[in-house]
């Protein structure tokens, strides 16, 4: 690499279609686990709100799963599922559970008790109350959780590329750049994954504002 510049812009220009494919794969590696994790943790959170005894064990188990280093989790599953997408998706999903479970529970807990009583007084059944009162009011904190989970998953998904070349995603650029000692690919993968993480962060901050018109109104009032 003595005479070559650190970043070969012409190479990037010639491989833009590759960049788009990898970026799309990476989004997929992020969106599927976060969506699955959200559904699972929403169920767990509703259960924990109804039966508080569930909260402790659930945080303990999701915390335990979170403690497993990502590369080890992929390594556990590779001999079982080979290089199928499951090897990447399963650990990435379990990593979101700790964050999403906690944020979903705090979302439900943020609903004031008198609002719940008012809903009960108006004759809402438990299911109606959940759907029309608790869920909408829990959304801001839930979106915060989704935002944190997405950003974390973008980073973890790059690691999956170490275990094999069929998961795709931006980590692939990094491992290929390392194998062929081509810094352009390394930086491309690294910079794009950080950029993707920040973009998702900003996107979800926007969604949070959009989903909470009352908070926006309050902010405008005080401004």
């Amino acid at each position: 690499m003595e005479d070559k510049p650190l970043v070969d812009w012409a190479w990037i220009g010639d491989h833009l279609d590759d960049v788009v494919v990898r970026l799309f794969q990476h989004l997929q590696l992020t969106a599927i686990p976060v969506a699955l994790g959200f559904v699972i943790s929403l169920g767990l959170a509703i259960w924990a709100i109804r039966r508080p005894i569930v909260y402790g064990p659930t945080t303990a188990i999701t915390g335990l799963l979170y403690t497993i280093p990502s590369i080890a989790a992929f390594a556990f599953l590779r001999p079982i599922f080979g290089l199928s997408l499951l090897t990447a998706i399963i650990p990435l999903t379990t990593y979101t559970l700790l964050i999403l479970f906690r944020s979903n529970v705090s979302g439900f807990q943020s609903v004031p008790a008198d609002v719940l009583e008012a809903a009960e007084g108006m004759g809402y059944t438990r299911r109606e109350r959940l759907r029309r009162v608790e869920l909408p009011l829990a959304i801001p904190l839930m979106i915060t959780g989704i935002r944190l989970a997405s950003v974390t998953t973008v980073g973890l998904a790059t690691v999956a590329a170490i275990l094999g070349d069929s998961f795709g995603g931006l980590g692939q650029f990094i491992t290929e750049g390392l194998q062929t000692f081509f810094p352009t690919k390394i930086y491309l993968g690294a910079v794009l994954s950080v950029a993707l993480a920040f973009s998702l962060d900003i996107l979800f901050v926007r969604i949070e504002l959009w989903a909470t018109p009352w908070a926006r109104a309050r902010a405008e009032q005080t401004a």
């Binding site: 944190l148 950003v151 974390t152 973008v154 980073g155 973890l156 790059t158 690691v159 170490i162 931006l170 980590g171 990094i174 750049g177 390392l178 810094p183 390394i186 930086y187 993968g189 690294a190 910079v191 994954s193 950080v194 993480a197 920040f198 962060d201």
Partner: peptide, 13 residues
């Protein structure tokens, strides 16, 4: 939170 460990390590190489 946003900087992946793998990317950072290789980028520092």
């Amino acid at each position: 939170r946003a900087v992946p460990s793998f990317a950072l390590m290789v980028a520092l190489l």
